[in-house]
């Protein structure tokens, strides 16, 4: 992890009509950091991530990525700036093979139209090898892979798109213990490559295994932040469940 700020959010708010989704969010995230956003349903985690991935335009506030202010809010321009998102459903195409999924929307072509199958396959092979993702055959359709392998392909695609800041939305949802461990191992290895990772998760215990810092969100605000080695599971759970516990 370095001292370089890769993502700076200042006074960010989003309203849907009169309803406040997030309000006055301020934070700075550093290169190679693994940051988790936790909170109950309706805390504003998903809204914040959707703004960062270009699905929503903020009502007010500013976002700077690698020192550049974001003006256009759509998936393509945010990807160009270096933020890529791995959605909870992974947004993979089950009937396409692994190479086609990794290159979806960013295909290598010759003579304008024709796909460069061999080059794409070689790049995909190299990428998966670097990320230590084991897949028996690149010819396999993504629908035939295990949950962990699918997550690996989705992360490989995000990195191939040029992602230096990766948003992972519930990366281990509906996964077994073994597969979740594989995915967290992969996330840790991304940090070594100086890729910044933002994780949105409900699973506080699993977040502890991987994140450097945890932001706790509640009713559209960041109510607390901790370095994971300065806190514990119970403290965070108490903050999230605080008012329920008081009842």
């Amino acid at each position: 992890m370095s001292d370089e700020v890769v993502l700076k959010i200042s006074h960010l708010s989003k309203y849907f009509g009169n309803i406040k989704a997030i309000e006055n969010i301020n934070l700075e995230i550093f290169k190679g950091e693994i940051v988790a956003f936790v909170g109950d349903n309706g805390a504003g985690k998903s809204t914040l991530m959707k703004i960062l991935s270009g699905e929503y335009r903020p009502s007010s506030g500013e976002i700077e990525i690698f020192g550049e202010k974001v003006v256009k809010f759509n998936p393509k321009s945010l990807i160009k700036k270096g933020i890529t998102t791995v959605y909870q459903n992974l947004a993979l195409v089950d009937n396409l093979d692994i190479v086609s999924n990794i290159f979806l929307g960013y295909e290598k072509r010759k003579f304008m139209f024709f796909l460069q199958h061999r080059e794409m396959k070689m790049t995909a092979e190299k990428l998966l090898k670097n990320l230590n993702i084991n897949i028996p055959s690149l010819e396999s359709e993504v629908g035939e892979l295990s949950g962990g392998q699918r997550q690996g392909v989705a992360i490989a695609r995000a990195i191939h798109q040029g992602g230096r800041i990766l948003i992972l939305d519930e990366p281990t949802a509906a996964m077994g213990i073994k597969e979740s461990r594989e995915v967290y191992k992969l996330i840790k290895s991304l940090s070594k490559e100086e890729i910044t990772v933002l994780i949105v998760s409900h699973n506080i215990q699993q977040v502890f295994d991987v994140a450097d810092k945890v932001y706790i969100m509640k009713r559209g605000n960041i109510v607390n932040q901790f370095k994971t080695h300065d806190t514990n599971y119970n403290e965070i759970a108490d903050i999230i469940l605080g008012e329920y516990a008081a009842c």
Partner: peptide
């Protein structure tokens, strides 16, 4: 590839722009 993607995961195409 996009025709196949339309048939089984249209949202995925939107998300890659």
């Amino acid at each position: 590839k996009y025709m196949i993607a339309f048939g089984c995961a249209e949202a995925s195409l939107k998300r890659v722009g």
